[in-house]
């Protein structure tokens, strides 16, 4: 399904700020895989997603989805294959437009847009039934402008928009980090439910180790641009948070006390 091979990206090459964000990263996902990604700040987690989403072109290596090499595709061209939810609840929706207008744009993700009138009754009914599943009462507010929604409501809407037209690959970059804990739990629960029910291939970055182990079927840990841990199957189901921290220390070397605290601190 997704094949990332030997991806390398160096930012600000040959300057004092040179930074190797990705160092020969390889990752293969099977259809329906849900991988959670953990690692300290600056480990390269977002860079991995950005390379997959086409935000930048890697220095070397390739990204292949379903046999198609998309390494050099512009981001908007990948939209038919990939959908994304960002950390900032403001970034996934158009604030001045209504809920139904945002949804109709998502329904057209990666498809040709025409001069046809965008909305109609059957689409509205479809949106209502999909919004109902969120359990936030948004189904009664189709013509409300998105800027009037709370952060959690906007993020739930963004998640619905990302999955309305099923992508090959769903990318979630700390998409609950800006929400209060209760709302975050709700959005995570929603995420797992949606990904499971449609068997979406998903990559989710999280700072929450408990989430990392409870969601999905595979967990990878990144450090200094490399994948240093990759657990699945029984190894993963037997994993505890404290053992995960321990493994992190072992794999990354003993000098990582700060990072350890950073990870532990988010629990």
């Amino acid at each position: 399904m997704l094949k990332v091979d030997n991806l390398t990206k160096v930012f600000n090459k040959n300057t004092i700020n040179e930074k190797k964000a990705l160092d020969q990263v390889s990752l293969h996902l099977s259809p329906g895989d849900f991988v959670t990604i953990i690692g300290s700040n600056g480990a390269g987690k977002s860079s991995l997603m950005n390379a997959v989403a086409g935000v930048f072109i890697p220095d070397s290596g390739e990204v292949v989805i379903d046999g198609i090499n998309i390494t050099n595709w512009a981001p908007h061209k990948r939209a038919g294959l990939i959908s994304r939810v960002f950390q900032d609840p403001m970034s996934g929706t158009a604030a001045s437009m209504t809920i139904e207008e945002n949804l109709i744009m998502a329904l057209k993700r990666g498809k040709k847009r025409s001069l046809r009138w965008a909305l109609n009754k059957s689409k509205r009914e479809y949106f209502c039934s999909e919004l109902e599943k969120l359990g936030l009462g948004l189904e009664n507010r189709l013509t409300t402008k998105v800027k009037l929604l709370s952060g959690g409501q906007r993020q739930a809407l963004t998640l619905l928009m990302a999955t309305l037209e099923e992508p090959k690959l769903l990318l979630l970059d700390e998409h609950t980090a800006a929400l209060d804990p209760k709302t975050a739990d709700k959005v995570i629960e929603l995420t797992c439910r949606v990904a499971e029910s449609s068997q979406l291939t998903t990559m989710m970055i999280t700072h929450n180790l408990e989430q990392a182990l409870s969601c999905g079927n595979r967990t990878i840990m990144m450090h200094e641009g490399r994948i240093i841990l990759d657990i699945k199957g029984t190894e993963r189901s037997n994993m505890t948070i404290s053992r995960l921290l321990e493994m992190f220390n072992k794999a990354s070397g003993v000098q990582m006390n700060n990072d350890r605290m950073m990870l532990a601190g988010t629990l």
Partner: peptide, 23 residues
């Protein structure tokens, strides 16, 4: 109010978002 018209409005509102929708 057409599909292209919505994409135009979204471009003025949130470029990152509408680009990630393939526009």
């Amino acid at each position: 109010n057409t599909e292209i018209g919505l994409a135009l409005r979204a471009t003025g509102d949130n470029e990152l978002m509408i680009r990630s929708q393939g526009v």
